[in-house]
């Protein structure tokens, strides 16, 4: 589904990614772990097309199409979703308005019928309920006045509504208590653990990986994947740290 080859990228002229190669097939969950500053978030932003993140070498394809040639909204319409490490607050725009606009823009781009206000609200309510987010909060401005945990839940509600085929989740587990982590882990499994979907799970810690078991674990250091393995690699990292691998 997603094929990353020899990906190099810079931010403000500084090289952050130095030749990443990674393939995600449908039905797979990949975890990317690594110390601070290893390039994890940069990888997520590059894949989503954030302005200011410049690809200097390499290629990325999504279902064989050149992902890097697409605008961010086109990547979304092709089924990609980025779960933000720091979700953005947008005063004056309600979650409901934002998500209905987003979902219908994606549906339009794919040639599907747009959802009516009623159909959308039903869908939004179901996803908010499943993730324990009060529907009243969905009517409020996007992430404004939300706690850190509520923002992360909101990311997952958005993901549930949009129902992407490929999700890149950037430290979705950071800042969550153990109960919230359980809810979010269950949400990821429910929405994404399907044979036609794939997930790139960026995380620091083993905790989330106990709930969402990855098929592959990769260690990122210095903008490169320095080691790959199965779920046992995450356990090893938890025990021994990144020290030697990152060196």
């Amino acid at each position: 589904m997603l094929k990353i080859e020899n990906l190099h990228a810079t931010v403000d002229g500084k090289a952050i990614l130095n030749g990443i190669g990674l393939t995600l097939n449908a039905g797979e969950i990949h975890a990317i772990m690594g110390p601070n500053g290893s390039g994890k978030s940069t990888l997520a932003y590059v894949l989503a097309g954030r302005p200011g993140y410049e690809v200097t070498e390499g290629s990325v394809t999504l279902d064989g199409e050149d992902l890097l040639a697409m605008e961010p909204h086109e990547r979304a319409a092709h089924g990609m979703f980025l779960g933000f490490q720091y979700p953005v607050e947008i005063p004056g725009v309600s979650n409901v308005q934002f998500l209905r606009t987003a979902l219908n823009a994606q549906r339009r781009a794919r040639g599907d019928k747009e959802l009516s206000a009623g159909e959308f609200l039903k869908l939004a309510r179901a996803q908010a309920d499943a993730l324990g987010l009060d529907m009243e909060m969905m009517k409020r401005a996007v992430n404004v006045g939300f706690s850190g945990g509520e923002k992360k839940r909101n990311e997952m509600v958005q993901m549930g509504i949009i129902d992407p085929r490929l999700a890149i989740l950037d430290e979705t587990d950071s800042g969550l208590d153990i109960d919230a982590l359980r809810v979010i882990g269950a949400g990821i499994n429910r929405i994404l653990r399907k044979p036609d979907k794939a997930v790139l799970l960026i995380t620091h810690y083993q905790r989330l990986l106990d709930l969402v078991e990855p098929d592959f674990v990769h260690v990122l250091a210095g903008g490169r994947i320095v080691r790959s393995g199965g779920p046992e690699l995450a356990v090893e990292l938890e025990r021994e740290g990144y020290g030697e691998m990152a060196a």
């Binding site: 302005p51 909204h73 933000f84 953005v88 947008i90 004056g92 606009t101 996007v142 949009i162």
Partner: peptide, 27 residues
């Protein structure tokens, strides 16, 4: 317009012109 907000909207599939309109209307 807040660039981070624009990117957030666009990353969810909102077209750039519509994202600008949403933020301007909110303003």
């Amino acid at each position: 317009l807040d660039r981070a907000a624009l990117f957030y909207l666009e990353s969810r599939g909102v077209e750039p012109a519509e994202a600008k309109a949403l933020l301007t209307r909110a303003f």
